[in-house]
Structures are given as C-alpha cells and as structure tokens.
Simulated assay, not measured.
Amino acid sequence: MPEQLLNRPTTQISLDNLEELTEFATEYVLTRPIYKSRNTSIVTAVHPEFPGVVAVKFSTELERLENEAKAGELTAETPEVVDILDTCIDTTTNLGYVVTPYTFSDLHKGLQDLRTLKSRTTVARDMARGLSAIHRENLVHRDVKPENVFLSGGGGKPAVLGDLGIVCENGHPTNMYSDKELGVLPYPDVTASGKTKLTPNWASPEQYNVGSITAKSDIFNLGLLISYIIMGVNPYDKAFKSVIYASVPERKRHAIDHLYVVDEVENYAEYLPKIALDHQRKAIRDLLGKCLSVDPTDRPDIDETIFALDSALSKV
C-alpha cells in the first residue's frame, strides 16, 4: 500500500469548476458532473483511446487515489472488479484523478430492475467473485455496499465491485484513539475532511473494536449486501443504536463521534425478516447465518461463499 504523503500544498483548482478541471485533465473532454463531495468530484467524459463514456474521479485525497490505482492494477484481469483505465497524481496542485468505465446504475438505483431471484443471486455471486480476486492479493476491500456495486445493464456482463480507495492489507490493525479520560477507543480511519472512511451500517463489527481487519471482514459486509439484494433489508439497520454519550464529558464527545454501539448479539442474521422462504432463499439464508456472525472465525471464506451462491443459482 502507498505510504502516506505529507506536506502537500493546498490545491489551487476548484472541484466545482468544470473549466479548471478540463484544463487539469487536458486529454479528456469533460461533459457532465455526476457526483460532488468536499474532496471529490466525479465527471463523465470521453477520450479518443477509450470506447464509450468514462467516469473521471477528481480528488484531493491523493493517498486514496494511489490506493485505488494500485489495487486496480493487481485485479486488472478480473471482470467483477472495476477497471482502472488511467490515473494521474499531481502533488504540486494536490489534485489527482482515476478514470473508470462509466456505469449508469449502482445497486441502490438499479435493484428494482433485478426482478428475479436468479438475477439478484447472480449479482451477489459476481460480488463474491470480485472479492475473491481482491483476497488473492492479500487485500481487504472494506467498503462493500450498494453504492459501490455497479450493474452492467445486461448483455451477459457481470456486476462490478468498485471504489478501491480504502483497500488495506489483510491483517491491517484497526485505528485506535487514545484519551487519558476515556482510555483507548477504536477510531475508524478518517478522511482529510475528518469524516470516517467507513459507512457505519455497512462495516463489520471488528472494525469498531481493538484488533485487525481481515478478509473475514469483507465476508460480513458481503453478507449484509446479500441480505439487501435478496431480502431487501440490511439487518444492521435494525441493530444499530445511536452513539452513546451518557458517560462521556461533553468536551470529549468528538472522540467518539464516529463510533457506533451495536446490540450485544452473536449473529446479525437474527435481524433478518421472519418470512416463509422457498428452498433457494432458505439456502441463501443459511449462508447468511454464517456470514453475519459477529465472530470472524465463524464466517466462511470467500471460496465457500462462492460455492454456496453457485449452488443456490443451480436451483433457481
């Protein structure tokens, strides 16, 4: 993974100004902004060497872009992982970009178009295959969620797992926040703007505890994603409580702003809807009963997960 880059100058290029971005990425014809946050702007574009429309993600978080580019290079031969077409990192302006094929729909927007159990299970299996390629490189994705699943729109092409920006090495320690009054608290990685890199109800429990992040963390996330795809629910949504401030002095509350306390359960499959299931859905629910275990050692590995999804598909 790339080393942290320090002492960079403040960017002089506005992420809101399409003309300035065009001058920065001179090889691209930028057409339409499609996403904007404090540190990132994604714009559709065309380039003579790339077929069709591409998405150019501009960002001032250069380490994250470097992370994404390196992980993309390692998984370049995997159709279920986003293809990184081009990368630019410019430390003089503190701005860079990565270029990927443009996909019209992520899973949040396109789930309703997946109208059969077979099509939904196929997307789940595609995500498992994408994670398999990442895990083979001894990496953990850490950010498996609907917004990072891009649908092909048919034609036999697989769904694609994207946004490799917070990929880490298998066994990466969870970040700790040390405070004299509060003791040592798990503190999720934060971006340059101070926001957590994790999506609270799409992150495995161990990422909020002292320990390490392993491939089994992705298995938990994949279990949440499969629940959402097949059953239409994320069991975390019911399980999460708000941040607890009761025993924390007000002046110290910033220390736990990104921490989430969950109910003390052993398996989040308990929060799946209690509905009658046909044979195929029962097989998937049995898989979720393993993936959503709080104890990472009780979760299956990615090959077992793919096998279970392939078996479910064979019965649809």
Rank of each mutant, 00 (worst) to 15 (best):
P9W: 06
T11W: 01
I13T: 09
L15W: 04
N17C: 07
E23L: 14
E23W: 03
E23K: 15
V29T: 15
L30K: 05
R32W: 01
Y35E: 11
S37W: 02
N39L: 13
N39S: 14
T40S: 14
T44E: 08
T44H: 10
V46G: 00
H47S: 08
P48K: 11
V54P: 04
A55K: 03
K57P: 03
E61Q: 12
L65K: 05
E66A: 12
E68A: 14
A71Y: 03
A71H: 06
A71G: 08
E73N: 05
L74T: 08
T78N: 14
P79C: 08
E80T: 15
V81G: 07
L85P: 06
T87V: 15
T87R: 12
I89T: 10
T93R: 14
N94Y: 02
L95A: 06
P101G: 02
P101S: 02
T103R: 13
T103K: 14
T103H: 13
D106G: 01
R115T: 09
K118E: 13
R120G: 00
R120E: 00
T121D: 01
T122A: 07
D126G: 01
D126K: 05
M127Y: 02
A128M: 03
G130E: 06
R136E: 13
R136V: 00
E137T: 02
N138A: 12
R142K: 13
D143L: 03
P146A: 12
E147S: 15
V149G: 03
G154L: 04
G154M: 03
G155C: 03
G156H: 06
D163C: 02
D163L: 03
C168Y: 00
N170Y: 04
N170M: 00
N170T: 03
G171K: 06
G171W: 06
T174P: 02
Y177K: 14
S178Y: 12
D179Y: 07
K180H: 10
E181T: 14
L182V: 10
G183E: 10
P186Y: 11
Y187L: 09
Y187D: 15
S193F: 05
G194N: 11
P200F: 12
P200K: 12
E206S: 07
E206M: 05
Y208K: 08
Y208Q: 15
T214C: 06
A215Q: 15
A215P: 00
A215C: 14
F220V: 10
L222V: 11
I226F: 08
I229Q: 06
M231W: 13
G232K: 07
N234K: 09
N234Q: 07
P235V: 11
D237K: 11
S242D: 13
S242E: 14
V243S: 13
Y245H: 10
A246N: 10
V248R: 09
P249Q: 04
R251F: 12
R251G: 00
D257L: 10
H258N: 09
V265M: 05
N267R: 04
N267D: 13
Y268L: 14
K274W: 01
A276E: 15
D278G: 13
H279A: 15
H279E: 15
K282I: 00
R285C: 10
L288S: 04
G289W: 09
C291Y: 09
L292V: 11
V294I: 15
I302Q: 07
E304R: 12
T305R: 06
I306R: 12
A308K: 08
A308T: 07
